[in-house]
């Protein structure tokens, strides 16, 4: 079965990203497909590689990046929400003349249409947020 997951909250403040991660892992371990994980609202903050939690805490961003690498996941950060919150990839850096970018490995920035498309093409869309 084809799943997509929506993450509407950033890391560390709310449990949403952790719950979404464990749910996504369980979906994959049961042999189902994850079509896309879409990050919206403050959820876009999961996609910055500049995250530096203390040694004894989990690295939520790296955890997503690693899972994406292992399972070839499509991690999509909403462009409108990302621009507002300063999540930038190379294209956005050029387009908006920023001095740097911060998108983490395995994440890409794209439009809200990717969320609608996930809703249309997935058998199940499961959202986590606050």
């Amino acid at each position: 079965m084809k799943f997509s997951v929506v993450v509407n909250e950033g890391p560390y403040t709310h449990q949403a990203s952790d719950s979404a991660y464990y749910f996504t892992r369980a979906v994959l371990s049961q042999g189902h497909e994850i079509m896309r994980v879409f990050f919206y609202h403050d959820g876009v903050n999961n996609g910055t590689r500049l995250t530096t939690p203390p040694q004894d805490d989990r690295n939520i961003t790296n955890r997503w990046s690693d899972l994406a690498k292992e399972h070839d996941l499509d991690l999509v950060v909403c462009v409108a929400a990302a621009q507002r919150r300063g999540i930038v990839d190379e294209d956005e850096q050029k387009r908006n003349s920023k001095d740097t970018n911060n998108i983490a490995d395995g994440f890409r920035i794209s439009g809200l249409g990717q969320l609608i498309e996930a809703g249309i093409q997935s058998d199940r869309l499961v959202a986590f947020g606050d």
């Binding site: 919206y40 409108a80 439009g111 809200l112 249409g113 969320l115 609608i116 498309e117 249309i120």
Partner: peptide, 11 residues
């Protein structure tokens, strides 16, 4: 914003 973008998908 989601609703407005979604409109283009003819759903």
């Amino acid at each position: 914003e989601v609703a407005l973008v979604g409109a283009a998908f003819e759903q």
